[in-house]
Nucleic acid binder design. Structure first.
Length: 400
DNA sequence: AGGTATTCACATGAAACTATTCTCTGAGTTAGG
DNA sequence: TAACTCAGAGAATAGTTTCATGTGAATACCTGT
Protein backbone atom coordinates (compact mmCIF):
# COMPACT_ATOMS: atom_id res chain seq x y z
CA UNK A 1 0.00 0.00 0.00
CA UNK A 2 2.74 2.39 0.99
CA UNK A 3 4.74 1.52 -2.08
CA UNK A 4 1.72 2.18 -4.21
CA UNK A 5 1.25 5.59 -2.76
CA UNK A 6 4.88 6.36 -3.35
CA UNK A 7 4.48 5.35 -6.93
CA UNK A 8 1.59 7.69 -7.53
CA UNK A 9 3.24 10.54 -5.70
CA UNK A 10 6.31 10.05 -7.75
CA UNK A 11 4.19 9.96 -10.84
CA UNK A 12 2.59 13.28 -10.00
CA UNK A 13 5.85 15.00 -9.14
CA UNK A 14 7.48 13.92 -12.31
CA UNK A 15 7.30 16.50 -14.99
CA UNK A 16 5.31 15.20 -17.90
CA UNK A 17 6.73 15.22 -21.38
CA UNK A 18 3.30 16.05 -22.64
CA UNK A 19 1.56 19.36 -22.40
CA UNK A 20 -1.65 18.36 -24.04
CA UNK A 21 -2.04 15.01 -25.64
CA UNK A 22 -5.31 15.80 -27.37
CA UNK A 23 -3.61 17.16 -30.45
CA UNK A 24 -2.15 13.72 -31.05
CA UNK A 25 -5.44 11.88 -30.82
CA UNK A 26 -7.19 10.77 -33.94
CA UNK A 27 -10.30 12.93 -33.68
CA UNK A 28 -8.42 16.13 -33.05
CA UNK A 29 -9.09 18.90 -35.54
CA UNK A 30 -6.36 21.54 -35.68
CA UNK A 31 -6.99 25.20 -36.36
CA UNK A 32 -5.23 24.93 -39.62
CA UNK A 33 -5.07 21.95 -41.93
CA UNK A 34 -1.69 21.88 -43.59
CA UNK A 35 -1.23 21.17 -47.30
CA UNK A 36 -4.92 20.81 -47.94
CA UNK A 37 -5.88 24.40 -48.64
CA UNK A 38 -6.83 23.80 -52.24
CA UNK A 39 -8.89 20.72 -51.59
CA UNK A 40 -10.58 22.40 -48.68
CA UNK A 41 -11.42 25.40 -50.79
CA UNK A 42 -12.84 23.20 -53.44
CA UNK A 43 -15.00 21.32 -51.00
CA UNK A 44 -16.08 24.56 -49.38
CA UNK A 45 -17.13 25.84 -52.79
CA UNK A 46 -19.16 22.77 -53.45
CA UNK A 47 -20.87 22.83 -50.09
CA UNK A 48 -21.36 26.56 -49.78
CA UNK A 49 -24.82 26.68 -51.40
CA UNK A 50 -26.14 24.86 -48.40
CA UNK A 51 -25.77 28.06 -46.42
CA UNK A 52 -28.37 29.54 -48.70
CA UNK A 53 -30.57 26.53 -48.18
CA UNK A 54 -29.88 25.14 -51.59
CA UNK A 55 -28.91 21.55 -51.88
CA UNK A 56 -25.26 21.24 -52.85
CA UNK A 57 -24.06 18.50 -55.14
CA UNK A 58 -23.35 15.17 -53.57
CA UNK A 59 -19.68 14.76 -52.98
CA UNK A 60 -17.38 11.83 -53.03
CA UNK A 61 -13.95 11.91 -51.50
CA UNK A 62 -11.30 9.31 -52.17
CA UNK A 63 -7.87 8.86 -50.69
CA UNK A 64 -5.80 6.41 -48.79
CA UNK A 65 -5.82 6.27 -45.02
CA UNK A 66 -4.19 9.18 -43.28
CA UNK A 67 -4.38 11.60 -46.17
CA UNK A 68 -6.55 14.05 -44.33
CA UNK A 69 -9.93 13.24 -45.86
CA UNK A 70 -11.86 12.98 -42.67
CA UNK A 71 -9.95 15.77 -41.08
CA UNK A 72 -10.63 18.20 -43.92
CA UNK A 73 -14.31 17.39 -44.03
CA UNK A 74 -14.66 17.80 -40.32
CA UNK A 75 -12.74 21.02 -40.46
CA UNK A 76 -15.08 22.43 -43.06
CA UNK A 77 -18.19 21.21 -41.35
CA UNK A 78 -17.07 22.72 -38.10
CA UNK A 79 -16.92 26.20 -39.53
CA UNK A 80 -20.11 25.71 -41.48
CA UNK A 81 -21.85 24.63 -38.31
CA UNK A 82 -20.52 27.66 -36.57
CA UNK A 83 -21.77 30.05 -39.21
CA UNK A 84 -25.12 28.39 -39.52
CA UNK A 85 -25.56 28.58 -35.81
CA UNK A 86 -24.63 32.26 -35.66
CA UNK A 87 -26.94 33.18 -38.47
CA UNK A 88 -29.67 30.76 -37.65
CA UNK A 89 -29.43 28.88 -40.88
CA UNK A 90 -31.29 25.57 -40.82
CA UNK A 91 -28.25 23.55 -41.76
CA UNK A 92 -27.28 20.40 -39.99
CA UNK A 93 -24.28 18.22 -40.52
CA UNK A 94 -24.14 14.63 -39.49
CA UNK A 95 -20.97 12.63 -39.43
CA UNK A 96 -21.17 8.87 -39.37
CA UNK A 97 -18.40 6.36 -39.55
CA UNK A 98 -19.79 3.31 -41.27
CA UNK A 99 -16.99 1.07 -40.17
CA UNK A 100 -17.85 1.04 -36.49
CA UNK A 101 -19.00 -2.44 -35.67
CA UNK A 102 -22.39 -2.57 -34.08
CA UNK A 103 -22.94 1.14 -34.57
CA UNK A 104 -23.46 1.96 -38.19
CA UNK A 105 -22.54 -1.03 -40.28
CA UNK A 106 -25.99 -2.06 -41.44
CA UNK A 107 -28.90 -0.30 -43.08
CA UNK A 108 -30.99 -0.38 -39.93
CA UNK A 109 -28.21 0.84 -37.72
CA UNK A 110 -27.10 3.55 -40.09
CA UNK A 111 -30.55 5.08 -40.18
CA UNK A 112 -30.91 4.58 -36.44
CA UNK A 113 -27.65 6.39 -35.95
CA UNK A 114 -28.76 9.31 -38.07
CA UNK A 115 -31.98 9.54 -36.14
CA UNK A 116 -30.01 9.49 -32.95
CA UNK A 117 -28.11 12.58 -34.05
CA UNK A 118 -31.48 14.31 -34.22
CA UNK A 119 -31.87 13.49 -30.58
CA UNK A 120 -34.21 10.55 -30.84
CA UNK A 121 -33.17 7.15 -29.72
CA UNK A 122 -34.00 4.09 -31.73
CA UNK A 123 -33.77 0.68 -30.10
CA UNK A 124 -31.06 -1.58 -31.40
CA UNK A 125 -33.55 -4.18 -32.48
CA UNK A 126 -37.21 -4.97 -32.51
CA UNK A 127 -38.48 -2.46 -35.02
CA UNK A 128 -38.99 -3.23 -38.69
CA UNK A 129 -36.59 -1.39 -40.95
CA UNK A 130 -39.27 0.47 -42.88
CA UNK A 131 -40.66 1.74 -39.62
CA UNK A 132 -37.28 3.21 -38.87
CA UNK A 133 -37.26 4.76 -42.32
CA UNK A 134 -40.62 6.30 -41.65
CA UNK A 135 -39.42 7.90 -38.47
CA UNK A 136 -36.43 9.14 -40.37
CA UNK A 137 -38.52 10.72 -43.13
CA UNK A 138 -40.84 12.42 -40.72
CA UNK A 139 -37.95 13.72 -38.70
CA UNK A 140 -36.19 15.08 -41.74
CA UNK A 141 -39.20 16.64 -43.33
CA UNK A 142 -40.49 18.24 -40.18
CA UNK A 143 -38.95 21.52 -41.24
CA UNK A 144 -37.18 23.21 -44.08
CA UNK A 145 -33.55 22.39 -43.72
CA UNK A 146 -30.43 21.13 -45.40
CA UNK A 147 -28.72 18.06 -44.08
CA UNK A 148 -25.10 17.34 -44.83
CA UNK A 149 -24.69 13.65 -44.29
CA UNK A 150 -21.11 12.47 -44.14
CA UNK A 151 -20.60 8.75 -44.53
CA UNK A 152 -17.05 7.90 -43.64
CA UNK A 153 -15.64 4.59 -44.85
CA UNK A 154 -18.69 4.18 -46.97
CA UNK A 155 -17.15 1.17 -48.69
CA UNK A 156 -17.61 -0.85 -45.53
CA UNK A 157 -21.32 -0.29 -45.79
CA UNK A 158 -21.71 -1.78 -49.23
CA UNK A 159 -19.25 -4.56 -48.61
CA UNK A 160 -21.49 -6.41 -46.18
CA UNK A 161 -24.75 -5.53 -47.79
CA UNK A 162 -25.68 -4.39 -51.24
CA UNK A 163 -25.92 -0.82 -52.39
CA UNK A 164 -29.60 -0.66 -51.66
CA UNK A 165 -29.05 1.63 -48.72
CA UNK A 166 -27.18 4.10 -50.83
CA UNK A 167 -29.84 3.92 -53.48
CA UNK A 168 -32.47 4.71 -50.89
CA UNK A 169 -30.44 7.58 -49.55
CA UNK A 170 -29.86 9.14 -52.94
CA UNK A 171 -33.52 8.78 -53.74
CA UNK A 172 -34.71 10.37 -50.54
CA UNK A 173 -34.52 13.89 -51.85
CA UNK A 174 -37.25 13.19 -54.36
CA UNK A 175 -39.59 12.23 -51.56
CA UNK A 176 -38.82 15.05 -49.22
CA UNK A 177 -41.02 18.11 -49.38
CA UNK A 178 -39.20 20.59 -47.22
CA UNK A 179 -35.82 19.26 -46.30
CA UNK A 180 -33.00 18.33 -48.62
CA UNK A 181 -30.13 16.03 -47.96
CA UNK A 182 -26.61 16.14 -49.35
CA UNK A 183 -24.45 13.06 -49.23
CA UNK A 184 -20.75 13.23 -48.67
CA UNK A 185 -19.07 9.88 -49.05
CA UNK A 186 -15.57 9.18 -47.89
CA UNK A 187 -13.74 6.10 -49.01
CA UNK A 188 -10.20 4.87 -48.99
CA UNK A 189 -10.94 2.35 -51.63
CA UNK A 190 -10.16 4.05 -54.89
CA UNK A 191 -12.16 1.68 -57.03
CA UNK A 192 -15.09 1.55 -54.65
CA UNK A 193 -17.61 3.22 -56.90
CA UNK A 194 -16.89 0.99 -59.85
CA UNK A 195 -18.92 -1.95 -58.66
CA UNK A 196 -21.84 0.14 -57.62
CA UNK A 197 -25.24 0.36 -59.18
CA UNK A 198 -24.78 2.93 -61.95
CA UNK A 199 -27.74 4.95 -60.73
CA UNK A 200 -26.19 5.22 -57.30
CA UNK A 201 -22.82 5.86 -58.79
CA UNK A 202 -23.86 8.83 -60.84
CA UNK A 203 -25.90 10.53 -58.19
CA UNK A 204 -23.47 9.86 -55.40
CA UNK A 205 -20.46 11.24 -57.15
CA UNK A 206 -21.80 14.40 -58.69
CA UNK A 207 -18.53 15.82 -57.49
CA UNK A 208 -15.41 13.82 -56.89
CA UNK A 209 -12.21 14.67 -55.16
CA UNK A 210 -9.05 12.70 -54.63
CA UNK A 211 -6.75 13.25 -51.70
CA UNK A 212 -3.16 12.48 -52.62
CA UNK A 213 -0.80 11.08 -50.03
CA UNK A 214 1.46 13.42 -48.12
CA UNK A 215 5.15 13.27 -48.77
CA UNK A 216 7.74 12.98 -46.03
CA UNK A 217 8.39 16.70 -45.76
CA UNK A 218 4.72 17.48 -45.44
CA UNK A 219 4.33 14.88 -42.75
CA UNK A 220 7.24 16.45 -40.92
CA UNK A 221 5.47 19.78 -40.90
CA UNK A 222 2.26 18.20 -39.75
CA UNK A 223 4.08 16.45 -36.96
CA UNK A 224 5.78 19.66 -35.90
CA UNK A 225 2.46 21.44 -35.85
CA UNK A 226 0.99 18.80 -33.57
CA UNK A 227 4.13 18.51 -31.46
CA UNK A 228 4.27 22.12 -30.53
CA UNK A 229 0.93 21.73 -28.82
CA UNK A 230 1.37 18.26 -27.47
CA UNK A 231 4.85 18.17 -26.08
CA UNK A 232 6.74 20.35 -23.67
CA UNK A 233 9.58 22.40 -25.15
CA UNK A 234 12.62 20.57 -26.37
CA UNK A 235 11.59 17.12 -25.30
CA UNK A 236 11.76 15.81 -28.83
CA UNK A 237 15.28 14.92 -29.79
CA UNK A 238 16.38 16.16 -33.19
CA UNK A 239 15.84 13.60 -35.88
CA UNK A 240 12.86 12.01 -34.25
CA UNK A 241 10.29 13.89 -36.23
CA UNK A 242 12.20 13.26 -39.42
CA UNK A 243 12.44 9.56 -38.84
CA UNK A 244 8.86 9.34 -37.81
CA UNK A 245 7.82 11.03 -41.03
CA UNK A 246 10.06 8.75 -42.99
CA UNK A 247 8.44 5.69 -41.47
CA UNK A 248 5.02 6.89 -42.43
CA UNK A 249 5.97 8.11 -45.87
CA UNK A 250 7.51 4.78 -46.62
CA UNK A 251 4.07 3.23 -46.38
CA UNK A 252 1.89 5.60 -48.34
CA UNK A 253 2.04 8.96 -46.68
CA UNK A 254 -0.17 7.98 -43.80
CA UNK A 255 -0.12 10.97 -41.49
CA UNK A 256 -2.34 9.34 -38.92
CA UNK A 257 0.14 6.57 -38.49
CA UNK A 258 2.95 9.05 -38.06
CA UNK A 259 1.04 10.88 -35.38
CA UNK A 260 0.18 7.67 -33.57
CA UNK A 261 3.77 6.65 -33.71
CA UNK A 262 4.89 9.87 -32.17
CA UNK A 263 2.31 9.72 -29.44
CA UNK A 264 3.16 6.17 -28.47
CA UNK A 265 6.86 7.00 -28.57
CA UNK A 266 6.15 9.84 -26.18
CA UNK A 267 4.17 7.60 -23.90
CA UNK A 268 6.92 5.03 -23.85
CA UNK A 269 9.55 7.66 -23.14
CA UNK A 270 7.49 9.01 -20.31
CA UNK A 271 6.87 5.61 -18.87
CA UNK A 272 10.54 4.86 -18.65
CA UNK A 273 11.25 8.22 -17.10
CA UNK A 274 13.27 9.54 -19.98
CA UNK A 275 13.75 13.26 -20.23
CA UNK A 276 13.34 13.33 -23.97
CA UNK A 277 11.77 11.35 -26.75
CA UNK A 278 14.54 9.60 -28.61
CA UNK A 279 14.95 7.53 -31.69
CA UNK A 280 14.91 4.30 -29.71
CA UNK A 281 11.45 5.14 -28.50
CA UNK A 282 10.28 5.37 -32.05
CA UNK A 283 11.42 1.87 -32.75
CA UNK A 284 9.77 0.48 -29.67
CA UNK A 285 6.69 2.46 -30.50
CA UNK A 286 6.42 0.92 -33.90
CA UNK A 287 6.77 -2.50 -32.38
CA UNK A 288 4.23 -1.76 -29.70
CA UNK A 289 1.67 -0.41 -32.11
CA UNK A 290 2.02 -3.44 -34.29
CA UNK A 291 1.77 -5.94 -31.47
CA UNK A 292 -1.08 -4.12 -29.77
CA UNK A 293 -2.96 -4.20 -32.99
CA UNK A 294 -2.58 -7.94 -33.37
CA UNK A 295 -3.38 -8.67 -29.77
CA UNK A 296 -6.44 -6.50 -29.79
CA UNK A 297 -7.83 -8.00 -32.93
CA UNK A 298 -7.30 -11.49 -31.61
CA UNK A 299 -8.88 -10.73 -28.28
CA UNK A 300 -11.81 -9.18 -30.06
CA UNK A 301 -12.54 -12.32 -32.03
CA UNK A 302 -15.16 -14.85 -30.98
CA UNK A 303 -14.10 -18.06 -29.27
CA UNK A 304 -14.28 -20.21 -32.33
CA UNK A 305 -11.87 -17.90 -34.13
CA UNK A 306 -9.51 -18.17 -31.24
CA UNK A 307 -9.74 -21.93 -31.31
CA UNK A 308 -8.89 -21.96 -34.99
CA UNK A 309 -5.98 -19.63 -34.46
CA UNK A 310 -4.81 -21.74 -31.58
CA UNK A 311 -4.80 -24.80 -33.78
CA UNK A 312 -2.83 -22.94 -36.40
CA UNK A 313 -0.31 -21.87 -33.81
CA UNK A 314 0.06 -25.47 -32.73
CA UNK A 315 0.93 -26.44 -36.26
CA UNK A 316 3.36 -23.66 -36.81
CA UNK A 317 6.54 -25.19 -35.31
CA UNK A 318 6.64 -27.58 -38.26
CA UNK A 319 7.88 -24.55 -40.08
CA UNK A 320 6.17 -25.30 -43.31
CA UNK A 321 2.94 -24.05 -44.71
CA UNK A 322 -0.07 -26.19 -43.99
CA UNK A 323 -3.47 -26.78 -45.50
CA UNK A 324 -7.08 -26.33 -44.57
CA UNK A 325 -7.54 -30.04 -44.00
CA UNK A 326 -4.71 -30.29 -41.49
CA UNK A 327 -5.94 -27.26 -39.64
CA UNK A 328 -9.43 -28.61 -39.51
CA UNK A 329 -8.29 -31.97 -38.22
CA UNK A 330 -6.29 -30.46 -35.39
CA UNK A 331 -9.01 -27.94 -34.72
CA UNK A 332 -11.57 -30.70 -34.23
CA UNK A 333 -9.27 -32.41 -31.76
CA UNK A 334 -8.67 -29.22 -29.85
CA UNK A 335 -12.37 -28.51 -29.73
CA UNK A 336 -13.26 -31.91 -28.42
CA UNK A 337 -10.59 -31.75 -25.79
CA UNK A 338 -11.69 -28.32 -24.65
CA UNK A 339 -15.39 -29.22 -24.80
CA UNK A 340 -16.37 -26.83 -27.49
CA UNK A 341 -18.66 -27.83 -30.28
CA UNK A 342 -16.92 -28.47 -33.53
CA UNK A 343 -17.89 -26.32 -36.47
CA UNK A 344 -18.13 -27.50 -40.05
CA UNK A 345 -15.23 -27.32 -42.39
CA UNK A 346 -17.21 -24.89 -44.46
CA UNK A 347 -17.20 -22.48 -41.59
CA UNK A 348 -13.53 -22.96 -40.82
CA UNK A 349 -12.81 -22.11 -44.40
CA UNK A 350 -14.49 -18.76 -43.92
CA UNK A 351 -12.73 -18.17 -40.64
CA UNK A 352 -9.39 -18.79 -42.31
CA UNK A 353 -10.30 -16.33 -45.01
CA UNK A 354 -11.06 -13.75 -42.37
CA UNK A 355 -7.78 -14.28 -40.58
CA UNK A 356 -6.14 -13.74 -43.91
CA UNK A 357 -8.00 -10.44 -44.27
CA UNK A 358 -6.89 -9.42 -40.82
CA UNK A 359 -3.32 -10.09 -41.79
CA UNK A 360 -2.74 -12.59 -39.02
CA UNK A 361 -2.10 -15.41 -41.43
CA UNK A 362 -1.06 -15.55 -45.05
CA UNK A 363 -3.32 -17.77 -47.05
CA UNK A 364 -3.02 -18.54 -50.70
CA UNK A 365 -5.30 -20.77 -52.67
CA UNK A 366 -3.26 -23.33 -54.50
CA UNK A 367 -4.03 -26.39 -56.49
CA UNK A 368 -2.15 -29.53 -55.66
CA UNK A 369 -3.33 -31.05 -58.87
CA UNK A 370 -4.53 -34.54 -58.42
CA UNK A 371 -4.44 -33.95 -54.68
CA UNK A 372 -7.02 -31.26 -54.68
CA UNK A 373 -7.28 -27.61 -54.09
CA UNK A 374 -6.81 -25.84 -50.80
CA UNK A 375 -5.49 -22.89 -48.91
CA UNK A 376 -1.83 -22.85 -48.20
CA UNK A 377 -1.54 -21.16 -44.84
CA UNK A 378 1.39 -19.72 -42.98
CA UNK A 379 1.42 -17.50 -39.94
CA UNK A 380 2.34 -13.87 -40.44
CA UNK A 381 3.68 -13.28 -36.94
CA UNK A 382 7.05 -13.46 -35.31
CA UNK A 383 7.91 -16.08 -32.72
CA UNK A 384 7.41 -13.80 -29.75
CA UNK A 385 3.97 -12.94 -30.85
CA UNK A 386 3.06 -16.54 -31.48
CA UNK A 387 4.00 -17.54 -27.96
CA UNK A 388 2.22 -14.56 -26.51
CA UNK A 389 -0.92 -15.28 -28.49
CA UNK A 390 -0.89 -18.93 -27.54
CA UNK A 391 -0.81 -18.05 -23.87
CA UNK A 392 -3.40 -15.40 -24.35
CA UNK A 393 -5.83 -17.73 -26.05
CA UNK A 394 -5.25 -20.45 -23.50
CA UNK A 395 -6.14 -18.02 -20.80
CA UNK A 396 -9.13 -16.55 -22.51
CA UNK A 397 -10.60 -19.95 -23.28
CA UNK A 398 -9.96 -21.40 -19.87
CA UNK A 399 -12.15 -18.72 -18.34
CA UNK A 400 -15.28 -20.12 -19.83
C1' DA B 1 5.32 -38.96 -76.74
C1' DG B 2 1.37 -36.25 -76.70
C1' DG B 3 -3.31 -35.30 -75.78
C1' DT B 4 -7.60 -35.79 -72.98
C1' DA B 5 -10.23 -36.95 -69.23
C1' DT B 6 -10.44 -37.70 -64.28
C1' DT B 7 -10.24 -36.64 -59.81
C1' DC B 8 -9.07 -34.79 -55.51
C1' DA B 9 -9.85 -31.60 -51.67
C1' DC B 10 -11.23 -28.18 -50.96
C1' DA B 11 -13.20 -23.14 -52.38
C1' DT B 12 -17.15 -20.38 -52.98
C1' DG B 13 -22.23 -19.22 -52.98
C1' DA B 14 -26.85 -19.13 -51.53
C1' DA B 15 -30.31 -20.09 -48.53
C1' DA B 16 -32.03 -21.50 -44.47
C1' DC B 17 -31.70 -22.22 -39.61
C1' DT B 18 -30.71 -20.96 -34.46
C1' DA B 19 -30.26 -18.14 -30.63
C1' DT B 20 -30.36 -13.73 -28.60
C1' DT B 21 -32.16 -9.43 -27.76
C1' DC B 22 -35.48 -6.26 -28.29
C1' DT B 23 -40.38 -4.06 -29.54
C1' DC B 24 -45.22 -4.04 -29.95
C1' DT B 25 -49.84 -5.81 -29.27
C1' DG B 26 -53.61 -7.41 -27.21
C1' DA B 27 -55.71 -10.49 -23.78
C1' DG B 28 -56.26 -11.01 -19.12
C1' DT B 29 -55.72 -9.13 -14.44
C1' DT B 30 -55.85 -5.78 -10.92
C1' DA B 31 -57.21 -1.85 -8.28
C1' DG B 32 -59.62 2.18 -7.61
C1' DG B 33 -63.97 4.71 -8.30
C1' DT C 1 -62.99 1.65 -16.34
C1' DA C 2 -58.18 2.81 -16.41
C1' DA C 3 -53.77 0.97 -15.48
C1' DC C 4 -50.86 -2.81 -15.39
C1' DT C 5 -48.80 -7.38 -16.53
C1' DC C 6 -47.33 -10.73 -19.31
C1' DA C 7 -47.23 -14.05 -23.05
C1' DG C 8 -46.73 -14.31 -27.91
C1' DA C 9 -45.65 -12.57 -32.53
C1' DG C 10 -42.33 -10.38 -35.15
C1' DA C 11 -37.63 -7.94 -36.10
C1' DA C 12 -32.58 -7.37 -36.59
C1' DT C 13 -28.27 -9.56 -36.22
C1' DA C 14 -24.46 -12.85 -35.64
C1' DG C 15 -22.98 -17.17 -36.30
C1' DT C 16 -23.73 -21.41 -38.28
C1' DT C 17 -25.30 -25.44 -41.11
C1' DT C 18 -26.98 -27.51 -45.44
C1' DC C 19 -26.98 -28.08 -50.06
C1' DA C 20 -25.00 -27.10 -54.48
C1' DT C 21 -21.73 -25.89 -57.58
C1' DG C 22 -16.98 -24.53 -59.07
C1' DT C 23 -12.06 -25.29 -60.00
C1' DG C 24 -6.65 -25.87 -61.18
C1' DA C 25 -3.49 -28.97 -62.26
C1' DA C 26 -1.19 -33.60 -61.12
C1' DT C 27 -2.14 -37.97 -62.63
C1' DA C 28 -4.52 -41.85 -65.14
C1' DC C 29 -5.82 -43.31 -69.42
C1' DC C 30 -5.80 -43.42 -74.42
C1' DT C 31 -4.11 -43.01 -78.98
C1' DG C 32 -1.47 -43.34 -82.81
C1' DT C 33 3.43 -43.57 -84.01
Amino acid sequence: MKGMRGFFENFLERESLFLDKTSLLSHYVPNEVLYREELINEIANILAPSLRIERPSNLFVYGKTGTGKTLSIRYILQSMDQISKERNIPLKSIYINCKLKRVADTEYRLIAQIIKSFGRDIPATGLPTDEVYNIFYRLLDSEKQIILLVLDEIDQLTKKMGDEILYNLTRINAELKKAQICLIGISNNLVFAENLDPRVQSSLSEEELIFPPYNALQIQDILRQRCSKAFARDVIEPGVVEKCAAYAAREHGDARRAIDLLRVAGELAERENAKTVQLIHLDSAEEKIESDKVINTVIGQPKQFQLVLYSILQLTPNNRPFFTGEIYELYSKVCKKAQFNVLTQRRISDILAEFDMLGIINAKIISKGRYGRTREVSVALDENMKVKLKELIEKSLQMN
